[in-house]
Design a protein around this nucleic acid. Sequence first.
DNA 1: GTGTTTATCGTCAGGAAGACGACTATGATC
DNA 2: GATCATAGTCGTCTTCCTGACGATAAACAC
Lengths: 253, 253
Amino acid sequence: MSPYDPSAFPPFAVTVDLVVLTVRRHALCALAVRRGESPFQGRWALPGGFVRVDEDLSAAAARELVEETGLCAHDPESPVQVNGAHLEQLATYGDPKRDPRMRVVSVAHLALAPDLPAPRAGGDANSARWAPVDALLTQGGYGREGEQVAPLAFDHAQILADGVERARSKIEYSSLATAFCPPEFTVGELRRVYEAVWGVALDPRNFHRKVTGTPGFLVPTGGTTTRQGGRPAQLFRAGGATLLNPPMLRPDV
Amino acid sequence: MSPYDPSAFPPFAVTVDLVVLTVRRHALCALAVRRGESPFQGRWALPGGFVRVDEDLSAAAARELVEETGLCAHDPESPVQVNGAHLEQLATYGDPKRDPRMRVVSVAHLALAPDLPAPRAGGDANSARWAPVDALLTQGGYGREGEQVAPLAFDHAQILADGVERARSKIEYSSLATAFCPPEFTVGELRRVYEAVWGVALDPRNFHRKVTGTPGFLVPTGGTTTRQGGRPAQLFRAGGATLLNPPMLRPDV
DNA sequence: GTGTTTATCGTCAGGAAGACGACTATGATC
DNA sequence: GATCATAGTCGTCTTCCTGACGATAAACAC
């Protein structure tokens, strides 16, 4: 492979696809966009697009995230959440037949965001939405209004499943669950994140003892809130720790 | 992006690079090949090569692994192979400037292998070797004969570091450490794998209690061996479990 | 006030893990 | 053959973590 001759290697298209997760109404939800073109026209898919010539992979993912979620300073109320959204590379999918048109290698990324306002997508309000991952992953699942939903386009069901699995396991040993929360949050709100992502019920007392006892996980802000009803709860920010020691333990497994 | 026009997206070259790890003489070692061409001519690099037109990413990685080491990648579907090795996707590296010649996106893979005979590489015995990862990762480290070694080519130091970190963390909660062992091994041999990968000393008694008590991790074969000297040790095979519960705990951290 | 909801503290039993003593079974050395 | 070095295996003890769960606290709705 000495001198670089464009005919000496096969040309690929490289894209980024995004698994954007959030917790809405006690359910883990993913961002889905409706395809306007063939193939899979009309089907739901993960947001994504081509990587540009002089663009790093992570930059392409960040750009797509901004384009699809519209969080780029358009929401003056929550700019901090936007900047705090977590983004990481997930995996790369390159089956030769994953796109019927051509050879496309897609570098999937995982984004975790707090509950956001309804998504926007190119001005077409109907073309993007949050959907519970359970519905998206169930072959022939049911959508928000109970209608039948076709499986995701391409291999996006696999990508979504991998992203969900990554999130489920990573909140065990990292402080990533705070990425689902607003900048200030209560222990109860954090617990509901774990419950939604894992799909289990956790004991509030043991959970409280655990998270407040893990060094570097939570930092009290001094404020309190009653937005959840009941007795006022302390507000916390995410501490500096990224790795939790000891880790949170998922029941069963 | 309706009709697929080759000029509508930038063409990329896609390669696979391999982080092949093994444990030799109580040290974690990686496979390195010497570059014969510019750029980075004469420098050490990770093995790798172009993905072919109709080849899946994992197939390309497995092919490169065979070409460089003669190893067969272990297929979870098929029975354990004598020359089996663990192979998994690691991460994808696509900085626009990572290769000075052109835009190359590299899908790095991680392979774990038992201690192998000296590597072969295209018949040139001097062009491939096992090197301790510490030496490869230390900028201006020292090689086997104590000579100064230049840093790895391209961004391969970063890729290697990521691969080592993946291996270090993954043997905590999975049975992956057995991939460094021959098909039958003793508890002591497995312990020396953990010690080499983590770079710590472990208590033989607690380690023995732990691994023999973790369900599905080890299956006694009934045989014994004295190849390590001392009292004969029981031989084990890897059990079916891939996820360890409870996990092995890395000291400190 | 009473009831409901959520937050927070405390207690207790069971289990896991680190530290470490003791014993066993080989080969090597004298 | 006795002794020693080496490695493997079994136990014990203490400490800490965790799950189960009782009890109290502070808000709101009626």
